[in-house]
């Protein structure tokens, strides 16, 4: 029946900032991020883990936030699309998506950016096959994926060049 379960207090970290919120156990992390915390960058495309539009990173791993309960965020470190750019400006993956026209309607873009960032950090120099395999959980219906793959490859190149530069500067 509709006798409301007591809301649970959760303390977590979102994009480097400590955050507290109250949520019902049934609220997904996606609902909490969007409706409670106002982080509407992550999108609901299917609400059952098959499109990747709601992808966020929890403790360094990409997950579908529609398949995580808000209460599970207790003590976790969460990164969302809103945390990819910083005061210095856009992250290379964001720049490469823009320069490479790797988005059309843009609804899948936040999920792709989050997954791509996770991939670039975990597997620099990934092959096209690896990119396509690891991001197959992110659906795009507009682009045919070509420009998305190329944007990720270009961002990878730029990131490895900047790493090389910083090595030479040491």
């Amino acid at each position: 029946m509709t006798t409301a379960t007591k809301k649970i207090h959760v303390t977590t970290t979102v994009n480097g900032e400590s955050v507290e919120f109250l949520c019902e156990p049934r609220n997904s992390l996606l609902e909490v991020l969007r409706d409670t915390l106002g982080l509407t960058g992550c999108k609901e495309g299917c609400n059952n883990g098959n499109c990747g539009a709601c992808t966020v990173i929890i403790n360094k791993r990409p997950v579908n936030s529609c398949l995580v309960l808000g209460v599970e965020a207790e003590g976790a470190e969460i990164e969302t699309v809103e945390g990819i750019a910083d005061a210095r400006g856009l992250h290379p993956i964001q720049d490469c998506f823009l320069e490479g026209a790797a988005l059309q309607c843009g609804i899948c873009t936040p999920g792709f950016l989050v997954s791509a960032k996770a991939l670039l950090e975990k597997k620099p120099g990934a092959s096209e096959e690896t990119i396509r395999f690891d991001l197959s959980g992110n659906l795009c219906r507009c682009t045919g994926y070509d420009k998305i793959v190329r944007a990720i490859q270009e961002a990878d190149k730029q990131l490895s060049a900047s790493t090389d530069d910083s090595k030479t500067n040491d």
């Binding site: 969007r34 699309v81 750019a85 964001q94 823009l98 988005l103 843009g106 609804i107």
Partner: peptide
Amino acid sequence: KVTGKAVYTAD
């Protein structure tokens, strides 16, 4: 659209 600021209807 690459920062999550674009406002779609559900937002």
